[in-house]
Design a protein around this nucleic acid. Sequence first.
DNA 1: AAGTCGGGGCT
DNA 2: AGCCCAGACTT
Length: 354
Amino acid sequence: MQPDLFDKKAFQTDLIQWFKQNQRQLPWREDQDPYKVWVSEIMLQQTQVDTVIPYFKNFIDKFPTPTALAEADEQDVLKAWEGLGYYSRARNLHTAVKEVKEKYQGIVPEDRQQLSKLKGIGPYTLGAIMSIAYDQPEPAVDGNVMRVMSRVFRIDDDIAKQKTRRIFENLVREIISLEDPSSFNQGVMELGALICKPRNPQCQLCPVRAHCQAFQSNSQADYPVKSKQKKQKTLHYYVTILESQSGEFLIEKRPSAGLLAGLWQFPMIEQGEVDAQLLATFLEQTYKTKVLNTQKLESIKHIFTHLIWSIDVFHFKVADFSITESAQQLVSLADMKDYPFPVPHQKIIEQLNI
DNA sequence: AAGTCGGGGCT
DNA sequence: AGCCCAGACTT
């Protein structure tokens, strides 16, 4: 980049003026409450705005302050996060507000170092909170910012690589508005979401196209450069629904780490561990009960970012039995609403309700 | 540096 | 059927 060919002041003005006139009205933009900025930024990680809106409203309604969230049970926090995905975000946020309550009297710290040590606050979220909540000129580089800036300056570093983020952070430090860093950062992201989109960018509507190298060379489709991720592997499971004669269902809590940590599910058995023909016998031995009736339900395919679940679902009516571990519960269909389930298991519950 | 961690929307 | 999304953490 040749700085003398880039009119920084004009870029800032064009961007910020556009943002102030075209920004969407979003629930986390109603005030500058650092806690709300924080919650919104965590929810927005890898998640689209329209998906986040109802979750954000419900979450703030249930947990209006850091202290209120700190004092909540983890299960209730996960329940409020149910269906949003990346559940470690919720557990890390919960951990972090407990620290804010204990160490900072429930006030979200304004200090960069203190903020950055909180669980779940990485480079992007740190910059977002510092700039949006506290008006500090910190870069907040997300996928939008890398896409927009890669086009404006024709930067061809691979944005899938971790270290590339630092290149864009250094760039933003050079050009960020010191008068209104909040509108600058949000403006770049809003531009990325509404105009400078991954495919078919609306360059004719872009407020900064006069400053954009890709537009001038009609090469916007070549940016950003991003290497492909490799394909998911498919895992095959049986899900076994055990319904006792008294109408209760066996659910179990997933481990506190790893995939879908802390959520509840019907027992899952990897295919290959047990032959399908021997499933009933296996369950009778494992849960000390007697299978009275077996019914196969609709199979489920669930696609995660890095793997695929292919699930065959069986509904067993069994003789009454008792559970032995605290990570297991016998619950009625109606009581399942109090437990957080992963989406594929929510879909199974819907099947049971029909 | 690579892998793990969800789910939905869009083309 | 991929690709994308206001990424962070672990190994």
